[in-house]
Design a protein around this nucleic acid. Structure first.
Lengths: 341, 341
DNA sequence: ATTTAGCACTCGATAAGCATGAGTGCTAAC
DNA sequence: GTTAGCACTCATGCTTATCGAGTGCTAAAT
């Protein structure tokens, strides 16, 4: 529906604006080598593009700026594959070369690298561990009334929680309980634990109802504490953007970034594959001036976490998408290999 | 060396500036009920105070602003005890009423409350665990080559690390090793662990040199990962301050706050008791426009962590100091009681 | 039928000029 | 020692003028 020339011009305008942050005028475009038309022609096309809703004019005598619709078209149709530089590729490779790291640590570094490479804010959601299988449960009594319960998954993740002990329970009894749990539940995927606990063990555990509940809760917690899986890096990068040189404009954004639970609704598992949310397309008011690009990474083909970038609508979409894809792929490969061992 | 009247005036100026953020003029002071002098008199005194270095003038025809030296005198001599409101006290009580929380969690909430009550940025350094005693060591093999080592302290803290297993070690052998470690090292304070490992066990562990090293490293890590003990809340509060309405002014500060390792040098164990760093007194350039108030909290009388507040030099010193003292005391009491069980 | 040169027009941004007023420093009187 | 009075300073805000990047439109050129 847009002519080739219109697409070419829209592309040129978006490209230019992404790098200059200034409204783009017709002359600027006509001077580009790949465009063989006078500024007057460009002006006419720009006028049409504005009427169609792809461009906006801050004021009458200014150049044009892409609208959300304009960016959307750019992202969906015009974006050209971006090649990473040697140094950038190197950093990525290095990240995944590290051995002997918990998956959470890898994810944390991923956020760091992501922000460094793109100069935008990185938001990463650590992997779900539903699919991980139980390797070991341990209850270590600390004194007469308290103990710490520990759950180890087959991937080496360790979750722990302080629990209250019922009155007068003995060390022997705790040991028996733990042995029972380990015997019955080892190699059970975490998402089945709840159910299996009720099904198989409740009968034998009537004496231990209290710990039973506590343990259930621990398992639950280790599965549901989503805020704790959010990694944020480079939050202040937004301050480098010329369109956010005003404290009032960034305040809401930075406050949002501080609340990890809110971030979940921004980046939380919204389906697999790459998603681009541009400006107004975002639900939260605080980031209607921003774009968010996310993609999922997976474990054995099943999406378990997200990596994402938050930047101004005027974002280097091409580069960010490339980097995100690389990282998501690397993470998936790494997790999967670790998981399968 | 300052006359009573000078002190009174300095006090009035600082108080006023803290709340208004505007340079304070002589008339404003003379109008205050507790001051019975004309603006001319005040002017003369202000002129003297400026000459002595306690006040500064942004420009000739503006009011006066306290200098670092002025704040220093205010903090050291003039500050009046601040009473907390019911609601504020309530929040503090509630915080320490929570049971069954890991000390780290309490510390995290502390940071939250601190920032909420003061409207400044809270920086809290979680407790050292040198003094904690070893309760349990566990090594859970995940496959032929990897295992996860877990250390539990008598306070319920759990540290874990992925380790590589030496070729061809059997489950039985691991179990023997763990039993040996538990037998010899239970109830040993963590700071002694290193030494004790070498002294008592190295002989019997010649076969296991590799894990030996790994375990040492785990212990080391759990003792030295200081960045991970830094809790930051309310970083964006600084954006509410009128003197920081300029992005360039806040950028450096926020970037500093993002780097937890740097924060350590700001808040890190700088001796026990209350410390106030005012403006220029700070080492780091980024926060020479800020003041930092810290105090330590302790375990059985020994300082083990810090709570701190970062705000503009124009800070409500009285209130912040009161809140910090309350929190540090509460934390100390809580930790100590938990420790002693 | 396109494309382009030319030109009048718009409007934000910048600078200059000016009035305002908060605040000072100084002097002389109390 | 204190204060009233007054001239002086300087940031702030307002108005006006200038500048120039960029547009839209028209008419000529292709």
């Amino acid at each position: 529906m847009l002519s080739d020339r219109q697409q070419m011009i829209l592309n040129a305008i978006v490209d230019n604006y992404i790098h200059s942050a200034e409204p783009v005028g017709s002359r600027t475009i006509s001077k580009r080598e790949d465009i063989g038309f006078s500024s007057a022609t460009i002006r006419n096309e720009m006028s049409d593009l504005e009427e169609l809703g792809y461009l906006e004019q801050p004021h009458t005598s200014a150049g044009r700026v892409p609208s959300t619709k304009g960016y959307r078209f750019y992202v969906d149709n015009l974006i050209q594959p971006h090649l990473l530089e040697e140094a950038e590729l190197g950093k990525l490779k290095q990240l995944f070369a590290e051995r002997i790291l918990h998956s959470e640590q890898v994810v944390e570094y991923t956020a760091q690298i992501l922000s460094q490479l793109t100069n935008y804010t990185a938001i990463v959601l650590g992997p779900e561990i539903f699919e991980h299988r139980l390797k070991h449960i341990q209850i270590v009594p600390l004194n007469e009334t308290q103990a710490v319960a520990i759950v180890v998954t087959h991937t080496g993740r360790v979750e722990n929680k302080l629990i209250d002990l019922p009155e007068g329970i003995g060390a022997g009894e705790i040991e028996r309980l733990v042995n029972l749990l380990n015997g019955k539940l080892t190699d059970v995927p975490l998402w089945q634990l709840r159910q299996r606990l009720y099904q198989e063990i409740s009968g034998e555990m009537q004496r231990h109802t209290e710990q039973y509940e506590e343990i259930l809760q621990l398992l639950n917690n280790s599965l549901t504490q989503e805020e704790e899986r959010v990694y944020l890096r480079g939050a202040t990068k937004i301050l480098n953007q010329p369109e956010f040189r005003d404290v009032d404009k960034v305040k809401d954004i930075l406050e949002l970034l501080e609340q990890h639970d809110q971030l979940l609704s921004v980046i939380g598992m919204q389906g697999d594959g790459l998603t681009v949310r541009i400006g107004q397309e975002n639900q939260l008011d605080a980031i209607k001036q921003c774009s968010i690009i996310t993609t999922s990474y997976s474990l054995g083909g099943k999406p378990v976490g997200m990596v994402g970038i938050l930047g101004p609508t005027r974002m280097e979409y091409g580069k960010v998408i490339t980097v995100l894809n690389h990282l998501a792929e690397g993470l998936s490969r790494m997790l999967t290999s670790q998981f399968e061992k």
